[in-house]
């Protein structure tokens, strides 16, 4: 059984890894098609994996409701939000589901159309615009307050490094608002220089290190040295 549990996954990773590396150096349409097909297959497998996320979320909140844990009432809103969104999003798909249930293909010739075309101006779109967007933007904007608090704590550490970080942050922040240019034209110029020279140098160094690390990890995966993705157990 070990061959199915460990060896076959390692063979799949090895073969696919090697094929995909060599595919890059083959200047032929079939190599491009292979990449496109692989991308589609990964999207299909990823599509199935959303069920795992759904299960995890529902299990957590269902358990909270079932056991009457503190704040269980809020979990109901997760189910309501989910149900409403799925219902409104897939309301146009009833034709498809009806076909599946009845076992008879209804309106086979109708083009499914692009997603934007079919959902713009619908209730789904309304929820996206007035609920999802509003909540998302507000939640991210709240972070500004916590970033300010974190910055205060960071800048309290009196060291050369903290001072450099503070100066760079202040210059960038002032330069990116109109008052920066009004104080002196040097401030936006200095901010541009920071972005284009020292920031670029550091980013390039980090990126090169990251790339070398990624390549070594990818090679370790292909050759079966890195097996973390297999998970624990036998």
């Amino acid at each position: 059984m070990n061959i199915f549990r460990r060896t076959i996954p390692l063979i799949i990773a090895f073969c696919l890894g090697i094929v995909m590396i060599f595919r890059y150096y083959v200047p032929h349409q079939s190599a491009e098609d292979l990449l496109t097909k692989y991308g589609e297959w990964v999207r299909i497998i990823g599509g199935f994996s959303i069920v795992l996320g759904l299960y995890s979320l529902f299990f957590t909140h269902y358990t909270k409701i079932k056991r009457g844990m503190p704040g269980w009432g809020y979990s109901i809103f997760v189910f309501i939000g989910f149900a409403v969104m799925v219902f409104l999003g897939l309301i146009k798909e009833f034709e498809t589901f009806l076909s599946i249930i009845s076992g008879k293909l209804i309106d086979v010739t109708s083009p499914f159309g692009s997603w934007e075309k079919s959902l713009t101006g619908t209730s789904y779109d309304w929820i996206y615009q007035y609920i999802f967007n509003a909540c998302g933007a507000t939640m991210f904007s709240i972070l500004a307050f916590y970033i300010a608090s974190a910055a205060y704590r960071t800048f309290r550490i009196r060291s050369v490094e903290a001072t450099i970080l503070l100066l760079a942050a202040v210059i960038i922040m002032i330069a990116r608002v109109p008052i920066g240019g009004l104080i002196s034209h040097w401030i936006p110029d200095l901010a541009d220089w920071i972005m284009e020279v020292p920031n670029l140098a550091a980013k390039r160094g980090v990126l090169l290190g990251m790339c070398l690390g990624s390549i070594s990890t990818a090679l370790r995966i292909i050759f079966g040295i890195e097996r973390g993705y297999l998970g624990g157990g036998e």
Binding site: G53, L54, F77, V78, F79, M85, T96, F132
Partner: peptide, 29 residues
Amino acid sequence: KIAEHIFVGIGMGMGVVLTWLQVIKPLLY
């Protein structure tokens, strides 16, 4: 907490709808 939980539920629902419309339906169904 109510707003947060609605946001989570709607986000997940949107994920399911998009997965069906943009992945499973055109590529598999």
